[in-house]
Design a binder for these strands. Structure first.
Length: 436
RNA sequence: GUGGAUAUAGCGUAGCUGGUUAACGCGUCAGUUUGUGGCACUGAAGACCAUGGGUUCGAAUCCCAUUAUCCACCCCA
């Protein structure tokens, strides 16, 4: 087939047959967030470019080479959001939300945009479920946020994951640590890869994350951030680990995880799936105690995480997790003849007004074909309407699963009689679980 | 951005040592007598064999380029 336009590189279409999968993730994620006291926030898909530069960080890959930046007619430069935290913080500040009772807890389901080379689990337009919490500096907040992420994954049925945590300290301890790293790595200047060499000055911590064999070999014996934490950061991390253990949340301390966004402080963590290949990070997050102040607010500790919805779906499919059953038709009205047509529309309207999922033939098909279609769409009941029935003022109501047919009187009180019959059938145990 | 692989009807595949109307399964549609689905049988529609060039008497089959997808690097959700 020759199309005049193709889907842009790195984007996906969500087709109706798969809608229930997205609904499963979105519903479970938002319901779980609500359980933990989070409320939904929505904010623009694009922001002033400077917002991302200042929050995500000028030196990060995301800002340097992955942003979709557009200039409108005026002078302002706007950027399609590459992540959700910056926009959330901006919206929180602009609406003065931190003046209300703290902690402030918000969640979102959004699309994000990054100009990367597409591959499995890495898209140019992707979707995130994320949460942010403002106001608490306690390790309890960290633990609660991690527990929320864990609960969402559990409720989705995802099993094959590992939780990695680390602390990258506050700006003070990080400064000391980075100096130590530079000193250590400078001894290997001639062996490190080019990217790592350029990382030396700007962000030596990223060298720890390098996948090249040589670099990671050298990094094995590099100083560890945890040895450089100040008293406060160390205590925070110790308390967090203890609390997670008390909650029964299994984790691995991985001194090498360094989130690639500049705003993180102290706790960072990620859930990695072993089921979907190289792009296995299905949830990443941490604390960003300095960001609110950096964007012009009062100093306010904060933290959050984001999950990649496409990656969650990949994982669920790989692990054969259960999705919500797709909604199916409650009753299909199969009609024959012009006279029945009017009555059919009347009945369908009645049924739909009552909230039933009711359908009828708009294809001009014969009775047999209509029945076939009714079966195809999984209709629980069919109503057959023809001249015979119209004369008598009745219709045939057929339970598709059982194949049984009964007569139902049309006219006043039809809906009540119809509902009664459904309930009767439900007690017979013949109906599925998503009747209403 | 860098490597490697792949690209045939809506989907999944066969055909690929070049040669008549490109095959199969699923799906779609229609029939298998009177007004009733699931099973079975029969038939039909649907592909300029990713796109653009080239080699050749002749290419889905060989060559080149482009694009997309997949895998890895990188990065991250």
């Amino acid at each position: 087939m020759e199309l005049i336009a193709k889907r842009p590189n790195g984007t996906k279409d969500m087709i109706p047959a798969e809608a229930h999968k997205w609904h499963t993730v979105e519903h479970i994620a938002s319901e779980t967030a609500e359980c933990f006291g989070f409320k939904e926030i929505r904010f623009p898909m694009f922001e002033e470019t400077g917002l991302f530069k200042r929050s995500v960080g000028d030196t990060t890959d995301v800002v340097q080479k992955e942003m979709y930046t557009v200039t409108a007619k005026g002078d302002d430069s706007f950027t399609l959001r590459p992540e959700g935290t910056a926009g959330t913080v901006r919206a929180v500040l602009q609406n003065g939300l931190l003046n209300d009772a703290l902690p402030l807890k918000a969640y979102y389901i959004i699309s994000c945009f990054r100009h990367e080379k597409a591959q499995k689990g890495r898209l140019r337009e992707f979707h995130q479920f994320g949460i942010e919490m403002f106001g608490s500096k306690s390790y309890l907040a960290d633990a609660d946020v991690i527990a929320l992420a864990q609960t969402v994954l559990e409720r989705l049925g995802i099993k094959n994951t590992e939780l990695n945590i680390n602390s990258i300290g506050c700006p003070q301890c990080r400064q000391k640590y980075q100096d130590a790293l530079r000193e250590y790595f400078s001894a290997y200047k001639d062996k490190l890869c080019d990217t790592c060499l350029s990382r030396m000055e700007k962000n030596p911590m990223r060298i720890l994350d390098c996948k090249s064999e040589i670099c990671s070999d050298i990094a094995k014996d590099a100083p560890i951030i945890l040895d450089y934490l100040c008293e406060e950061c160390n205590e925070h991390f110790e308390n967090l680990k203890e609390n997670l253990t008390e909650r029964g949340i299994k984790f691995t301390v991985n001194p090498k995880i360094v989130r690639g966004l500049d705003y993180y402080t102290k706790t960072v963590f990620e859930f990695v799936s072993n089921s979907i290949g190289a792009q296995g990070t299905i949830c990443g997050g941490g604390r960003y105690d300095g960001l609110v102040e950096q964007l012009g607010g009062q100093p306010t500790p904060a933290l959050g995480f984001a999950m990649g919805i496409e990656r969650l779906l990949l994982t669920m499919e790989a692990e054969n997790c259960e999705f919500f059953a797709p909604k199916t038709c409650d009753v299909y009205i199969a009609a024959m003849g012009k006279a029945a047509e009017k009555k059919t529309v009347q009945l369908v309207n009645l049924l739909r007004d009552e909230g039933y999922h009711a359908e009828y033939d708009v294809m001009g098909r014969g009775l047999k074909a209509q029945m076939k279609y009714a079966d195809k769409i999984g209709s629980k009941f069919t109503i057959v309407l023809g001249d015979n029935e119209l004369e008598k003022g009745t219709a045939k109501l057929k339970n598709m699963a059982k194949g049984e047919e009964t007569e139902i009187t049309l006219g006043d009180g039809f809906i009540d009689r119809f509902s009664d019959m459904l309930i009767g059938d439900m007690f017979d145990g013949s109906l599925g679980d998503n009747l209403f």
